[in-house]
Computed example of a mutant assay.
Amino acid sequence: MHILILGGTTEARALAGLLHGGGVRATSSLAGRVASPRLPEGEVRIGGFGGAQGLAEWIGAHAVDAVIDATHPFAERISFNAAGAAVTAHVPLLALRRPGWVPAAGDRWLSVPSLAAAADALDGLGERVFLTTGRMGLAAFAALPHRFLVRSVDAPEAPMPARAEVLLDRGPFTLDGERELLARHRIDVLVTKDSGAAATAPKLTAAREARIPVVVVRRPPVPDGVPVATTPEEAVAWVRSRLP
């Protein structure tokens, strides 16, 4: 059986390791947007497919029996391409999505549907913004007068805010480190996507302790009809149920 895993997330790498260790052939496909990605076990390909049709053709050419979409919760385009390709290629598709974050007592969260809405929400929340939405999509904040601390794994792409300091760093992050960062930069408000990752969750605790408001961008929905697993182990069970 040949499984195609889409994505280089923590869950995708764990899934590849479980399948590889269990004797199931798995090919992990990475988008290639990170300069030095952490490579999973098993076979790896890097780069796009050329849309849903290109992905369907690759599935057929490489005798893929099932596809698992383990991309970032906000990688909406590839998720919908995967859904279309699975239908065209007549293979089953599973989405592997880590659970989203849940606010705790004392949190001051403002939930918004998009980066543009997050930018609109900043008015009146403070001048110094800790922006942790990744290096892409910063154009939504480019026209704002706020001071931004932008944290990302790789250097951000233009356009971006004029008054921005870039911090290149990769999680996991510690609670003490996040506390110190918020205090050192005198952060007034945090903006983040609901990625749900444990590695980046300490910033939420630090913001709660500092009574800092958090603007949370809601994740897009999984395409209609696609079943969802929340852990790599659940995804392995789904694969095992399809073994001959």
Rank of each mutant, 00 (worst) to 15 (best):
M136F: 05
V87I: 12
A199E: 15
W101K: 01
N81M: 14
G106Y: 04
A164S: 14
P113F: 02
I78L: 00
R98M: 13
G196F: 05
V102W: 04
A83S: 11
E157N: 04
G137I: 08
T133S: 03
T200H: 02
A197Y: 04
G171I: 04
G196D: 06
A89K: 01
A197Q: 14
A117W: 01
A183Y: 02
T133M: 07
L131Y: 01
A183W: 08
V191I: 08
A162G: 09
L122F: 03
P156T: 00
D154G: 11
G177Y: 00
L131H: 03
R184H: 10
A116C: 03
S114E: 13
A119I: 01
G177R: 00
S152H: 00
F80P: 00
G124L: 13
A139T: 03
N81F: 11
V153W: 09
V189Q: 07
K193V: 06
L149R: 03
A197I: 09
I187W: 00
M160F: 12
N81S: 14
F80E: 12
S114V: 02
A95P: 12
E165P: 09
V102M: 13
F80K: 09
L125W: 08
R108G: 08
V91E: 06
T200V: 10
E127V: 00
A83F: 01
A82V: 11
E178A: 12
F80L: 13
W109H: 07
D120T: 06
F130E: 00
G171L: 10
R147V: 05
A117K: 00
S114A: 11
R128H: 10
R135S: 14
E180A: 14
L96D: 01
E178G: 07
T88V: 12
L93W: 00
R108A: 14
G84Q: 15
L190Y: 03
K193R: 15
R98N: 12
A201M: 13
D154P: 13
A158N: 12
D194Y: 07
L131S: 03
A116T: 02
A83R: 02
P156A: 07
A121M: 11
W109A: 11
A119C: 08
G134N: 03
A199D: 14
K193I: 07
P159H: 06
P103N: 10
G124S: 11
M136D: 14
L115K: 02
F148P: 00
A199I: 03
E127L: 12
W101L: 10
F173N: 07
A89G: 10
R184W: 04
G171S: 07
A121Y: 06
A158V: 08
G196H: 04
A158K: 14
F173I: 05
F130P: 01
L182Q: 08
N81W: 12
V102E: 15
A139V: 07
A199K: 09
A199G: 06
L167Q: 06
M136G: 05
P92S: 07
E127Y: 02
A162L: 15
E157H: 05
E178V: 04
R97K: 11
W101D: 00
A118S: 03
S114G: 07
V189F: 01
P103I: 05
T174W: 13
G171W: 05
A104T: 10
E157C: 02
L122T: 04
S114L: 12
P103D: 11
D120Q: 15
A116G: 13
L125D: 04
